[in-house]
């Protein structure tokens, strides 16, 4: 008899609790969807920035050491090799070294930036490409 009286009360409580929890989950899902939309937007902006030579610098995805040069296609390898020699270079500097056209070098260097192999920075009107190393290079 005691058990029969207690059961409906427990179900009602459980249902209330469930509705509360569902509301909480719904709220969290809303935040996650919002966050995802923000990330997608940021990603699109970063990709656009990489394409139009702006001040964007990608996080390196691979170590730009000499061994990883071997896994690059020959066209990109030639550009990357020049940047070991010149600490930083514009597309014009790269073209002078590789004896290829400036727009070609600009395209290759930007591709290497997107791959995370190179970094780039703007100084006035010039855009410089460089290989990032954590230690300062001193003569």
């Amino acid at each position: 008899m005691v058990k029969a009286k207690q059961t409906p009360l427990n179900v009602e409580l459980l249902l209330k609790k469930l509705v509360e929890e569902l509301g909480f989950v719904n709220q969290k899902l809303g935040s996650l969807i919002e966050l995802n939309e923000k990330l997608v937007k940021m990603h699109e902006e970063l990709l656009r920035a990489g394409d139009d030579n702006s001040h964007f610098e990608a996080k390196p995805k691979l170590e730009p050491d000499v061994m990883s040069l071997l896994s690059l296609p020959p066209s990109l390898r030639k550009t990357a090799m020049v940047l070991y020699k010149l600490e930083q270079a514009t597309a014009t500097d790269l073209a002078r070294e590789t004896k290829r056209l400036r727009p070609v070098e600009s395209a290759y260097a930007n591709q290497l930036v997107r791959m995370g192999y190179l970094r780039k920075k703007r100084e006035g009107r010039e855009v410089y490409f460089y290989i990032e190393s954590p230690l300062e290079v001193r003569k």
Binding site: D65, Y84, E87, I131, P134, V137, R138, K139
Partner: peptide, 22 residues
């Protein structure tokens, strides 16, 4: 590390430029 090797090759280039220029 591989990171050190990146710096090492750049230092090697800088050493060569010091040898030739200075």
């Amino acid at each position: 590390s591989r990171t050190w090797e990146v710096t090492a090759v750049k230092r090697l280039f800088s050493l060569q430029s010091t040898l030739f220029e200075d």
